Amino acid sequence: MTDYAREILSDGKLLRQKLEIFLQTPSKVEIYARACEKFFAAGKQRELNYVSTWSWWAFFGTLFFFLYRKEYKIAAALFAVMVASCFIPFLDGHDSAVGIAVSVTSAAMAEYCVCDSFVSLLDKQDDEALRRGGGVNRWAIWLAVIFYALVAIVFALIISNGGKA
């Protein structure tokens, strides 16, 4: 982390201004500002250190949350874990346990991942890089809605067939 990033994280007003540029969702600035301050304090004002937080959006949205916040590597890793869990023989019948573990992990780490990306972009000392690297993908919300609607339809079909797939 650069001295520039430490300076931003040390100044609450400046942190919120830079987060607004990065997040492009003003209603979420305070949530992430408090999270960044928490991680920075845990790192003794030298770096960000992980401290558990909670995001209901990430809990229920998992990889869709990370797609929404442009955290593509994390979304890809979560997708790979979920797909791989379907093909691992000793996990057969434990799919829900894997799903819950992914949801809890996503919820606990979501804010840290976003803040870490923010600080990485801060190190460039360029507000335009913050704007380009941040923001949201609104299509991820629609993708989540479609996915969960399909899951609900499949679940309803299974129930209507007496539990037989």
Results as ranks from 00 to 15, higher is better:
M1F: 11
M1G: 11
M1R: 15
D3R: 01
Y4R: 12
Y4F: 15
A5T: 12
R6G: 05
E7Q: 11
L9C: 05
S10V: 06
S10M: 05
D11I: 04
G12S: 15
G12P: 12
K13S: 12
K13W: 10
L15Q: 01
L15C: 00
L15V: 02
K18R: 14
L19S: 05
I21G: 02
I21S: 10
F22T: 13
L23P: 00
T25Q: 09
S27H: 04
K28W: 09
E30I: 07
Y32R: 01
R34H: 09
A35F: 01
C36L: 02
E37V: 04
E37P: 02
F40A: 06
A41V: 11
A41D: 13
A42S: 12
G43A: 11
K44Q: 10
Q45H: 07
R46L: 05
E47D: 14
E47A: 08
E47M: 04
E47Y: 10
L48G: 00
S52D: 04
S52H: 01
S52R: 08
S52A: 15
T53M: 01
T53V: 02
W54G: 11
W54N: 14
W56H: 04
A58T: 12
A58S: 10
F60R: 09
F60V: 10
G61H: 04
L63K: 13
F64V: 04
L67W: 15
Y68M: 01
R69D: 06
K70Y: 12
Y72V: 09
Y72W: 12
K73E: 05
A76M: 14
L78R: 00
F79V: 05
V83R: 02
V83T: 01
S85F: 05
C86A: 13
C86S: 12
P89Q: 13
P89G: 13
D92Q: 11
D92T: 15
G93W: 01
H94M: 11
D95Q: 15
D95K: 15
A97Y: 14
A97K: 06
V98E: 11
G99P: 14
I100A: 15
A101W: 01
S103D: 06
V104Q: 10
S106Q: 08
A108F: 09
M109T: 13
E111F: 03
C113H: 06
C113F: 05
V114T: 05
V114I: 14
V114C: 02
C115D: 06
F118V: 03
F118H: 00
V119N: 02
V119H: 07
L121V: 01
L122A: 02
Q125Y: 08
Q125G: 06
D126C: 10
D126R: 08
D127G: 10
D127S: 15
E128R: 09
E128N: 11
E128P: 01
A129C: 07
L130K: 00
G133N: 05
G134N: 09
N137L: 14
N137K: 14
R138P: 09
A140T: 03
A140P: 12
I141R: 05
W142H: 03
L143Q: 10
I146F: 14
I146Y: 10
I146Q: 10
F147V: 10
F147K: 12
Y148G: 07
A149L: 12
A149N: 02
V151N: 13
A152E: 05
A152V: 09
I153M: 04
V154L: 04
V154T: 11
F155M: 04
F155V: 05
A156L: 14
L157S: 04
L157H: 00
N161I: 01
G163I: 09
K164Q: 09
